[in-house]
Amino acid sequence: MISFYFGRLMEIFPFFLKGLWMTSKIGFISLVTCTLIGFILGIFRSSDSTILKRMVGVYVAFVRGTPFVVQIFIVFFILPEWGVQLEAFSAALLAMAIMGSAFICEIVAGGINSIPKGQWEAATSAGLNRIQQLRLVIIPQAMKVILPPLVGQYVLLIKDTSVVSVIGIMELTRVGWVTVVRIPEGLMVFTLVGFLYFIISYPLILLSNYLEKKMAV
């Protein structure tokens, strides 16, 4: 019986690859957007302006304080009520961007805050403006602190893409969920799904471990 189901599973394997492609697509797009927004928010969060700091702080607290599923439901169900129509794919990307950028913002702000005040002062007295200070002096040094947890956050982001399956996006987890109805071998189907996730996220985990060792002073 098991070998029969295994054969069936192999027949629909391309379906799984499609899911893997969708997962990688969502993962990659949200990785890029989250990094961009996260860096901008992180710079705001570590700035001297109290209002900016507070506003970003509220946003981060809201995102970190609620589960990702609830955030997806809020984006997918509530925004249409307020007149913003989104299809599932863009809703998923939006939810991922909101969630990921808040976490990356905290990492970036932590990295920037770890740079001693003297570096800022030196950059100011060298006649650099605010953007040059960040670009040439602060960020390159902060990268050492930012990079290891950032890669760790990427792993979490890729794993969190599994949650967007709840709004019906045909990514890897959803494919497994649909398959298990037809092939009632839960262990086999979800071992395959887990294995495919493992292939994407394990190299990133190794990279994160490597960076952590390398960047440790």
Partner: peptide, 21 residues
């Protein structure tokens, strides 16, 4: 390592659909 590199949702489904089999 297996737990850390797979999503929790997949682990939940693994047990939910897997244990009955």
């Amino acid at each position: 390592e297996i737990v850390r590199s797979t999503p929790l949702l997949v682990q939940i489904y693994f047990l939910y659909f897997g244990l009955p089999t």
